[in-house]
Amino acid sequence: MEFPSSSQLDIELIYSKWINYNVDIDYIVIIRGFGDEEFKAEFTLTRDNIGSFWRLSSGKTPEICDQLSSEQVVNSFVKLMKGVILGRNEQLIGDLFLDSFVFYGCKTNYQKAEAIQLLLSLPATMRFTISSSQLISDSQITFTVKIGEIGSNEIISEVHLYRDSMIMSHWKLSSGAVKNCGQVSEKRSVEDSDYGFGPYF
């Protein structure tokens, strides 16, 4: 393939995520310079062991999917998660997460095992309300969810789902973070309370 000498290739990184820490990385870029159009491409870097060179193991152009599809995926996942949490089955809850999962809370960060225990400790009255979702690629979705008990203030979290359709049968949680920590801290300073479920985050 040949390109005009005047072509200026530009690659912008817009997303990256550990799949297996220090072993595999998925990342998405926007590529410009092939004519007037720009397009997204998804790649995976891998290496045999720590200290060895990173190599491209795969790459693809993500499939186009509309907003409704991401909403359907997220709604189905959250519905499943609610049912599994109510069932208090630690093994089933664990199957909702990638092993590399990290949740960034206001007071501390939670690895997969800690996140499972956190979900097991949530009361049955805890509500999960989805406020938005966005397709990052055909294997990655980001969504915002409000978490709170009836009559309490809500924690707003941004959560990431991941699925490799070649090896995974369903979507899994890859990471998450509380987005309104400042409001949580302010509320705690005004009221001498646990902010509904303050001890959890």
Rank of each mutant, 00 (worst) to 15 (best):
Q67L: 00
I31E: 15
F128K: 13
V145P: 12
V84E: 10
T108R: 11
C106M: 02
A113Q: 13
S174V: 00
K112C: 13
S132G: 02
F143G: 02
D164M: 01
G33H: 09
F143Y: 15
I136Q: 03
S16F: 04
W54R: 11
F101I: 02
S5W: 04
T61H: 08
E154Y: 06
E37P: 07
G151V: 14
L86S: 09
G176H: 09
G33E: 02
L98F: 04
I28Y: 01
S175Q: 03
E2T: 09
G35D: 15
L120D: 08
I93Q: 13
S137E: 00
T144L: 01
D48G: 09
D10Q: 15
E12D: 15
N89D: 14
Y21D: 03
V159D: 08
P123A: 11
I93C: 12
S5D: 10
Q111D: 14
I64C: 08
T61Q: 12
F197R: 09
I14V: 15
I141A: 00
G182Y: 01
S16K: 06
G196H: 03
D138F: 03
K187M: 11
L13R: 05
G35I: 10
N109P: 09
P62H: 05
G83H: 12
D48Y: 09
G33K: 02
G148V: 00
E149Q: 15
M168N: 09
Y162T: 01
I50K: 09
I116Q: 05
N22H: 09
N109F: 08
E154W: 03
G182C: 02
Q183V: 07
L119D: 10
C181F: 03
N49G: 08
R127L: 07
Q67A: 11
K187Q: 12
L9E: 14
K112M: 11
G148S: 15
D26W: 00
G87K: 10
E2P: 04
S165Q: 05
S16A: 14
E158K: 14
A177K: 14
G198E: 02
D95R: 13
